Amino acid sequence: MVEHRTVTVGELRLHTAEEGEGPLVLLLHGFPECWYNWRHQFTPLAGAGYRVVAPDQRGYARSDRPAAVEEYTILHLVGDVIGLIHALGARQAVVVGHDLGSMVAWSTALMRPDVIRGVVGLSVPPPQRGPVPPLQAMRERFGGQFYWNYFQTPGVADAELAKDPHATFRRVMYGLSGDIPHSDPPVEPLVPPGKGFLDLFEDPEELPGWLTEADIDTLATEFTEAGFTSALNWYRNFDRNWQLTAPWDGAQYRMPGRYLTGDRDLVYGFPGMDQRIPALPTLHPTVGPAHILPGCGHWIAEERPGEVNAALLDFLGTLNS
């Protein structure tokens, strides 16, 4: 059974959901997610002999939400993970991340290889530093319409997403899934002038089989009080993170890793991914080739829990052998 509690990490209070005993496995959610998005992973991993902990990360759901934008840099987020591992009484952990949680997982593994004994990223591959800051690069490529850039203006996306959290999650969960009508090439996530992020997605008449109205209600409830500003602040630090992570440019992972994605994930279609993902075995030999799930969209752990859990257990088994 999943147990909930609050863990103090430095000056921050993080809500955690936990099940099982054994070696520590941290599950780090992405945007706009929380502990609940790992609901299908708790029992299978705990049943296999692992202590599974999924925090609401800084700024999300039931965890603390610092006011300043500058308190959401990648160094803050990595510090939270390391602090949480120690607060849970562990010396080391395996970190598994999805979406922006993958960014945190990969970065934590690079920055603290003494603490992270294995790393898995879902959707977002290991970071690769570009020649210019990422927000600048997307602004120049897409005329400021890429959704990362839309998220930068204080108060705009915040209000749009918070207006009706239930509708927000219905649109985003369905719209980024592998169940939407297929287009080739994939539609770029561009927000035209005068439009909003949610205008990119339809409100489905019927949810796909892996997602229920109860799931939508739970996610909406988790964000009704928290809102979306603190979560959006992660995006508002992308260029700052580019500056802060310069010392790790070209660094490789010292521990085993694994990368899983769906071929219908919007991140899979981002500019440069067609070269970056096939190059993973060369760029990061301990991570090796990508595991690509055909027909799967962005919410890989929820759309394909059986396959993801099998891959996670296989990976964890290699660390114990």
Rank of each mutant, 00 (worst) to 15 (best):
L316K: 04
R62K: 05
V2K: 01
L161D: 13
N37A: 12
L198R: 01
R91L: 05
W35L: 00
G47K: 10
V187Y: 11
L293E: 13
L135V: 04
L100D: 12
S183T: 15
A251H: 14
E188N: 09
G89F: 07
F169D: 14
V191F: 05
F151Q: 06
C296R: 00
Q41S: 04
A137S: 14
L207Q: 13
D80S: 01
E205T: 08
P208T: 01
L313G: 00
P23Y: 05
F169Q: 00
T73K: 09
A214K: 15
V94R: 02
Y72A: 03
Y36C: 12
D80V: 00
L26H: 00
R112D: 10
H166Q: 11
Y268I: 01
Y259Q: 15
G196R: 01
Q41A: 06
V81R: 04
E140V: 02
E21T: 09
L313C: 01
H98K: 07
T224E: 10
A61R: 04
R276P: 03
P126K: 04
S177R: 04
T212I: 12
F169H: 05
M173G: 09
A93S: 13
G49W: 11
Q41I: 03
M1K: 06
T245E: 13
G297Y: 02
Q128P: 15
V120E: 11
H166V: 12
A93K: 00
V25S: 15
V94G: 03
V132L: 10
L14N: 01
Q136E: 12
F146M: 09
H98D: 15
F270M: 13
W210S: 09
L293Y: 07
E160H: 07
